[in-house]
Simulated assay, not measured.
Amino acid sequence: MHAHPYEPPADIGLTEAEAIALHYYRAAHRDGWTALVRAIADALSDLDAAQAHAERQGRLISRGYARGRSNG
């Protein structure tokens, strides 16, 4: 029997996505809506950070390419 009916048994292997979802669910005191909103907010924040990093890297590469050109 499970301690809580919405949690998987301890001996079952979870996928990475399931483990992350379960972490958010437990951190939100088993409030599914709050867990979902927090997970999406974190994912969007990570996506914004990754996009900003990619843009900074793109600018560095572009400048380096332009500086490395020979004029002749």
Score class of each variant (00 low, 15 high):
R67I: 14
P8E: 15
A54Q: 00
H29G: 10
G64P: 02
L36A: 00
L14E: 15
H2G: 08
A43W: 01
D48Q: 12
I61W: 05
T15F: 08
E18R: 10
R59E: 13
P5T: 06
L44K: 02
H4G: 08
A43R: 01
N71P: 10
G13P: 07
Y24F: 13
A3W: 00
G72R: 09
H29A: 04
G68K: 08
I20Q: 09
L44P: 03
H29K: 09
A43I: 02
A28N: 04
A49D: 12
L22C: 15
A49Q: 14
G64M: 04
G72F: 14
I12S: 14
H53C: 09
S70A: 12
E7M: 14
Y6W: 13
R59S: 04
R63H: 11
W33E: 12
T15K: 06
H4E: 11
D31E: 08
D48G: 02
G68R: 08
G13W: 10
Y24A: 01
Y24H: 08
G32I: 03
R63P: 01
I12V: 11
I20F: 03
A28T: 00
A43T: 05
L60C: 08
A52G: 09
A39G: 05
A35D: 03
R59T: 05
H29Q: 06
R30H: 12
E16Y: 07
H23Y: 00
N71L: 11
H4K: 07
Y25L: 05
H53S: 09
S45D: 05
V37M: 04
A10C: 00
Y6I: 01
